[in-house]
């Protein structure tokens, strides 16, 4: 073999080896990228699944604890003799986050009251200062004050959140409020005129303003357990809220 030919074959061998190394390097890179992508996707779907689990609501299993409407417009839901711990719920019927809270954690709160684990006090408020949300909220909350029977009160309360209008439109119209009242079983003779004339509006506004000030509320919904505000990361996670309330009762 000539020197030149030998040189050429060596060069070819080296080139082939380089090519092989390059290919292998490429495969290794691809494998690394695929591994990372798979891990990332697994973590994201795991996190998504966990978030969905965290937000699972309870269902209201049995009946509700007795509800008593107070003269100041609040309503107490508690089994007879249960006086502590006290869960205060400050909410505005027009506030979307309050609706979300009622949907996610409302059943847990009702169940705990029915189990005799907590005394719940609902404080319907109006936090909005702009239209149309302010008038919507005032109409709904004033109508709620027209219901004096506890069972009907909580049913009407739930119905209001279910029917909550968007924040940009006029809603909670008088005729609808009267109709929903009848739907949930309100039969008291004064109810229709009380809603139509909004006779409770002044009392509600006064109560709402005073409560917002006295309780130093930043917004709604606010939940206080024995006077201490509960964190959002608890109130929107039914299992965490249940645990918090049960711990407070120990």
């Amino acid at each position: 073999m000539s020197k030149a030919a030998r040189g050429a074959s060596v060069r070819a061998r080296i080139a082939a080896q380089r090519e092989a190394e390059r290919k292998q390097e490429q495969r290794r890179r691809l494998a690394t990228i695929i591994t990372v992508v798979v891990v990332v996707l697994a973590v994201i779907s795991g996190g998504w699944w966990y978030a969905a689990q965290q937000s699972k609501s309870e269902t209201v299993a049995g009946g509700l604890a007795p509800v008593t409407v107070q003269s100041d417009g609040t309503a107490v839901m508690a089994k007879a003799g249960v006086t502590s711990p006290v869960l205060d719920i400050y909410e505005d019927p027009q506030c979307p986050v309050c609706k979300q809270l009622e949907e996610i954690s409302g059943p847990t709160i009702k169940n705990l009251a029915a189990e005799g684990k907590v005394k719940v006090v609902y404080h319907p408020l109006t936090i909005f200062s702009q239209e149309p949300t302010r008038s919507n909220s005032l109409r709904a909350a004033s109508a709620l004050r027209c219901v004096s029977d506890g069972k009907q009160w909580i049913a009407f309360h739930d119905r209001l959140f279910k029917e909550q209008p968007r924040e940009t439109v006029e809603g909670f119209k008088i005729d609808d409020l009267v109709k929903w009242g009848h739907d949930v079983g309100v039969t008291a003779p004064g109810f229709d005129s009380c809603v139509k004339d909004q006779t409770q509006q002044a009392a509600h506004e006064q109560f709402s303003t005073k409560t917002l000030q006295d309780q130093k509320l930043q917004g709604t919904p606010t939940l206080k357990l024995n006077g201490q505000q509960i964190d959002n990361n608890t109130i929107f996670v039914p299992s965490a809220l249940r645990q918090e309330i049960i711990n407070a009762g120990k």
Partner: peptide
């Protein structure tokens, strides 16, 4: 991440 329902809202 602590309050997924709130994040949905």
């Amino acid at each position: 991440i602590g309050a997924p329902a709130l994040s949905v809202q």
